[in-house]
Design a protein around this nucleic acid. Structure first.
Lengths: 340, 340
DNA sequence: CTGTTAGCGCCTTCAA
DNA sequence: TTGAAGGCGCTAACAG
C-alpha cells in the first residue's frame, strides 16, 4: 500500500516508544517489559514492518546472507543440494544468495567478480572443485567458506566418500559373479574433478582386490558420453558383462544404447550408475545414492554453526553413500557367484 | 588477508583522493578526470575492494538484489528456470536471493515471513500459482513482482500457452491416426494449478474439434501417478492407442509400467509427455518443450527492465512451446491417418 | 526497564 | 573536476 515502506521510526511512533526499544523487541533482545514488547510487536505487524537487513547489517557487520556458489544450476543435483542448504539456512533465518559461475575454464576470477566481500556472511561452494589458488583467493574474501563435494584438509568440507561408493558398487557387481566389469567415466581432460578421480580409483581398488584388471573407458560427460562409451564396449571382441558408470547421466546414455541395440539389461549386461538421479528410478537403474539433499542440509547447518561460533572452520562431514538395488543388475549368465 | 575488509576510505586514502571521488569512479559516474579514475580503479583492485551493497543500498534505496520465490528447488524444472534468471540478473549486476517456500498449503503468510520488504528490489515468483489474495499481499511489499508460469492480467507475467501446447500435442496424436487418446494428469484435488487446468482444457478442445470425447484419468502427481493411471488404462476393456501425460514425470511413470508389462511403445501404445524433461531424451519420449531456461532468462530481463523503468509492470511475455518428436509416438496399427 | 547518542559505509547534495 | 557535510535505517554503548 504505502509507497514508502514503514521504517523503525514509524513503528516506534505507533507504539509510543523509542527506537532502541523497537530494535530490542525485534531482535528478541532481553530487557523489555512484556506489555511493551507486545505493543511493539503489534505495531510492527500492523505496519507489516520488516527490519532492513541492509541497515542492521551496516551496524552489526553481519549481512544475514550466505552466498552459495555453483558451477551450474540446471543439473538435477544442484537443485537438490540447494534445497537442503536453503532449508538449513531458513532455520537460522539466513537468506540464500545463489551464484552460478559456469564451467571451470570460464570462471577466472569469480572470487573477485562476485560481490561476496561485504555482502554475505559465509560462502558455500558446491562441486566447485577449487584449486589451491582459488581457495586462497577465497580466504581474501574474509568470510568462512564451506566446501560441498570436495574435501580439503583444514577447511570445512561436506562430501561423500566417492572412493568407497565406487568400490562398493564394483563389489556389488563382483559379488554377483561378474569378472568382466567395465567402467565408463568422463574423459579426464574434459572434467577432471576430484570426485571423478576418486570414483575411478575406488573401482580400480575393488577390481585389484578381486585380482582383476581394471577396464575403463573415458568419453564426454553426460548422456552423449555414455552412448559413445557403450558403443565402444559393444564393439569389443569380448564385451563386458557388467558396466559401472561414473554417474547416472552417463549410465542413462549407455542404457539408451543398450535398449536400441536390443541388448537385454540385466539379462546380457548389468548396468549400474552413481548418484541416484531422479530418473534412475524410472529406468530401474541400480545406483549409488549420495543423498544430495542431506548433504545440502548438513552444509547449511555447518555454515550456521560456524557463524554462531559453535563449529570449527575445519570440520569435515562425510556423508554416507548407499547402494540402491534396482532391476538393472543381476548375475551374469552361467555365473558361479552368489547366484548359484 | 586483512581481517577487516577494505572500506571506501582505504581506497580513497591509497589513491590520494576524497571519498566522493572514489564513489563516483566506482559507480561509473561522469565528471572524473581520466587519470584520477584510473588511479582509483587501481587502488580498489589492489585492495580487492568491493562496494558494500548494504551501505550503498541504504542511501539509494536499492538493494541490488532480486528475490526469486519457488515452491520447490528439487524438481529439475526450477533449477533450469533459476539458471536463466540468474544469467539475466548477472548481466545487470544484480544478485539473486532464492527462497523455497514449500507446497501451497504449507505456505501461509510467506509474503510476510520472508524479509522481502526492504531487502530486495523485485520479486520473481516461479510456478507459485498465486491466489488473488497472495497477489495483493505481495503488493504490500512495495516492490515490482514478476510472475513466471502464471498469467495474471495487469501484472508482469512470463508464461507458456499451456492450452495451445496440450492442444498441439493432442493434434499430433490425432494426425498420426489415433482416436482413442487418453489423458493422464494429476488429480485436481492434489495439484490444481492453472497450468494443470489449461493443459487439460487444451487436450479437451483438440479432442472436441476432432469430434472425439475426452478421456482423462487423474491420479497422484509424479512417477507414482503415472504408474497408477497407466495401470488403470491397461485394465480398460478397450485400452487407448495413445496417451498424453500432463507432464513428463507422469509420462515416465507410465512408460515404466508399459515397459514392465511388455507393451511396446510406440508399437502398441503411443506415449507423449509435456515439459521436455532432462530424462525424456533418454527414454526417447516425444514431448512438448517449454524452454524453461529461456523463460527464466525472459523473466530476469523483464525484471531488470522494470527496475530500469524501461518495461511496464503489466508486460506479458508468452513463451513458445514446441513439439519434440522422438520415438515414443507413431501411427496406430492399421491407421488410416497420415501414415497411409 | 527505557531513552539518548554516536556511528556503521556509502551516496548525494552543495560549495569550492 | 573535486572535496566537505549530512543522512539513509539501524544497533550498541551509555545514561537515566
Amino acid at each position: 500500500m504505502s509507497s514508502q515502506p514503514a521504517s523503525m521510526r514509524d513503528v516506534a511512533h505507533r507504539a509510543g516508544v523509542s527506537l532502541s526499544t523497537v530494535s530490542r523487541v525485534l531482535r528478541g533482545a532481553p530487557g523489555v517489559a512484556p506489555d511493551v514488547r507486545l505493543r511493539v510487536q503489534r505495531a510492527a505487524d500492523e505496519l507489516s514492518y520488516v527490519v532492513s537487513r541492509n541497515a542492521s547489517g551496516l551496524v552489526t557487520g553481519r549481512t544475514g546472507r550466505v552466498a552459495v556458489v555453483v558451477p551450474f544450476l540446471q543439473p538435477w543435483f544442484f537443485g537438490v543440494v540447494l534445497s537442503g542448504v536453503s532449508d538449513a539456512l531458513r532455520e537460522a533465518d539466513l537468506d540464500m544468495l545463489v551464484y552460478q559461475v559456469g564451467e571451470t575454464r570460464a570462471r577466472e576470477g569469480w572470487t573477485r567478480a562476485l560481490p561476496l566481500r561485504r555482502n554475505s556472511d559465509a560462502v558455500v561452494t558446491v562441486s566447485m572443485d577449487l584449486s589451491e589458488d582459488e581457495c586462497h583467493r577465497l580466504d581474501d574474501v574474509g568470510v568462512p567458506v564451506v566446501l560441498v563435494g570436495q574435501c580439503v584438509p583444514g577447511r570445512a568440507s561436506v562430501y561423500i566418500d566417492d572412493r568407497a561408493g565406487a568400490a562398493g558398487a564394483t563389489r556389488h557387481l563382483l559379488n554377483l559373479g561378474h569378472t568382466r566389469i567395465a567402467y565408463i567415466g568422463a574423459r579426464r581432460e574434459e572434467w577432471s574433478s576430484t570426485s571423478s578421480r576418486h570414483r575411478l580409483e575406488g573401482y580400480g581398488a575393488a577390481m585389484a582386490t578381486a585380482g582383476l584388471a581394471p577396464w575403463s573407458v573415458g568419453k564426454a560427460t553426460g548422456h552423449a558420453g555414455g552412448e559413445l562409451a557403450m558403443g565402444e564396449l559393444l564393439s569389443d571382441q569380448d564385451p563386458p558383462t557388467a558396466v559401472l558408470a561414473e554417474f547416472d547421466d552417463i549410465a542413462m546414455g549407455a542404457h539408451r544404447i543398450l535398449r536400441r541395440s536390443g541388448v537385454r539389461v540385466p539379462g546380457s549386461i548389468s548396468l549400474m550408475g552413481f548418484d541416484n538421479h531422479d530418473a534412475a528410478a524410472v529406468l530401474d537403474l541400480t545406483t549409488v545414492d549420495q543423498a544430495p539433499y542431506d548433504t545440502g542440509l548438513a552444509a547449511g547447518r555447518l555454515t550456521v554453526g560456524i557463524l554462531d561460533g559453535k563449529a570449527r572452520t575445519d570440520t569435515h562431514v562425510e556423508m554416507p553413500t548407499q547402494i540402491i538395488l534396482r532391476q538393472s543388475t543381476a548375475a551374469p549368465r552361467g555365473a558361479r557367484g552368489l547366484s548359484t
